[in-house]
């Protein structure tokens, strides 16, 4: 629902990261990581990105989204697993003392700029 705001934020960070010696260059690709549990719908983000990128150095850029799986670790019995459902109960000991190893990412990792 807030993908437009996220897209605008990505574009701001990307534009600010273009090196000074490539000031007029076009950004070809933006690489981001989105966790499975992040409240972001990749399709909506692609759509918003396309619109928000118009008239910026990212006008022709591709938004490359790497989806990060939800990985959980039980802090009691130390078992780790990749969860396909949002269930945070330990698979082995049924305990509820777990931590999320990955799945909440919403990170911009790099941009690829025309050289």
């Amino acid at each position: 629902m807030h993908e437009m705001g996220i897209a605008m934020q990505i574009i701001e960070i990307a534009v600010a990261s273009i090196p000074a010696d490539l000031k007029n260059a076009q950004v070809k690709r933006v690489n981001i990581k989105v966790g499975k549990l992040a409240a972001v719908v990749p399709e909506s983000l692609h759509f918003c990105f396309q619109i928000a990128a118009q008239d910026t150095p990212l006008g022709d850029a591709e938004l490359n989204i790497e989806e990060i799986p939800l990985k959980i670790k039980c802090t009691d019995c130390n078992v780790e697993w990749t969860a396909l459902d949002p269930v945070f109960i330990c698979r082995r000991c049924n305990g509820g003392s777990v931590k999320m190893l990955s799945g909440r990412e919403l990170d911009i990792t790099s941009i690829e700029v025309e050289d």
Binding site: P19, R29, I108, S110, E112, V113, E114, D115
Partner: peptide, 14 residues
């Protein structure tokens, strides 16, 4: 991509 330079950023969008 040929002819492109990759710039690492690594920061949270938010």
């Amino acid at each position: 991509n040929r002819g492109t330079r990759e710039i690492k950023i690594v920061r949270r969008v938010l």
